[in-house]
Simulated assay, not measured.
Amino acid sequence: MSDFDHEDRASGGLRELKKRETKKRITERGIALFLKQGIDQTTLDEIAAAAGISRRTFFYYFKSKDEILLSMLSGMGEMLTNAVRKAPDQSTPMIAARDAVLSVCNTIPSSEMIELDRLMRTSPSVQARKQAFYVQQEAEIYEALKERWPEPDSSTVLRIVAMVSVGALRVAGDIFHKEQGSRRLVGILEEIFSSVDKQIRLGEVG
């Protein structure tokens, strides 16, 4: 490999790093403004100024203000599927999915989750796309499970496991919102999975 090839790869790596840092900065500044002022009261120009970019550059990363919130869901989804793929060898599909949901949700402080949930519920378009995210995440967890348990006769059970894990997350989110964060989301999830465990014997597949 020539010196030019090394320089091109290094340059490309730096560009990608800069893009990730810029997107992260836009997200953080945007969320901070949303929490302070509300989504509707925050303008794109304010977000761009807070992130140190132009309005035109903002549209390179996001199509709308709503997408800033939705990008956080996307990041959470990626964390979930990565956690499923990294589950210990002795895990069953249900345990892998359950532990992935619990570990990812445990990384988000309850106070931050309350505020983000409140923000998302103020936007009908975000709420609608949030439901679409759940469907997408169910499919992605299913694919991650299939990578670990590729046996054809496991397919149906793996789909059910993916549905149960995402369904638990949805129900826990509703309970968390109803209770205004009086209990940690992880605690609610543990309770839900415990109830499911009484009905579905863990370890039937794997």
Rank of each mutant, 00 (worst) to 15 (best):
D66Y: 01
M94A: 05
S111A: 13
M113N: 07
I95F: 05
C105A: 12
A83I: 12
D117M: 05
A87F: 09
E67C: 07
V84M: 13
G52C: 00
Y61A: 05
A87Y: 06
A96M: 00
Y61E: 14
S71V: 05
D99M: 07
L70E: 15
A97W: 13
S71N: 12
R56N: 14
R55P: 04
S111V: 11
A51I: 01
V101D: 05
E115V: 04
N106P: 07
A87I: 03
R118N: 11
M72P: 00
I95C: 01
F59R: 05
S71C: 07
Y61I: 14
F62V: 05
S111N: 12
T107F: 03
K86Q: 15
F59C: 10
T57K: 11
I53T: 10
I53P: 09
T92Y: 05
M113E: 11
T107R: 15
Y61K: 14
G75T: 13
I68V: 14
R85L: 13
F58C: 04
Q90P: 00
S111H: 04
S74L: 11
P109Q: 10
K65I: 07
L80G: 01
A51Y: 00
G75L: 14
S103L: 02
E115P: 01
Q90T: 06
I53H: 06
T92M: 06
M72D: 06
D117A: 04
R98F: 01
S103P: 04
Y60I: 14
E67R: 14
N106H: 15
R85D: 09
L70Q: 10
M94V: 02
G75V: 08
S103V: 03
I114D: 03
C105S: 14
I53D: 13
S64W: 00
G77F: 08
A51L: 01
A96L: 05
F62L: 09
A51V: 02
E78M: 09
R56V: 08
L102G: 15
E78F: 05
F58G: 07
N82V: 05
M79H: 09
E112L: 09
N106D: 15
Y61P: 08
M76Q: 07
R56D: 11
M94T: 07
I68Q: 07
R85C: 04
G75E: 12
S110H: 01
S64L: 03
P93D: 10
D99Q: 10
A83L: 13
D66I: 00
I114M: 14
S110F: 03
D117P: 02
S110K: 11
F58I: 08
A100C: 11
T57M: 11
S103K: 09
S103Q: 12
I53N: 13
N82M: 07
Y60K: 12
A96Q: 04
L80K: 03
I68K: 08
A83G: 10
L116N: 02
S103Y: 02
E115K: 14
G77K: 06
F59K: 08
P109N: 13
L69P: 10
K65N: 09
P93I: 06
A83V: 02
D89S: 11
P88Y: 12
K63G: 09
L73D: 06
R98A: 02
R85P: 05
R56L: 00
D89A: 14
M113I: 06
Y61N: 11
E78R: 05
L73A: 08
S111Y: 13
I53R: 09
P93A: 15
A51D: 01
D117W: 03
E115W: 01
M72W: 08
R56A: 08
I95P: 00
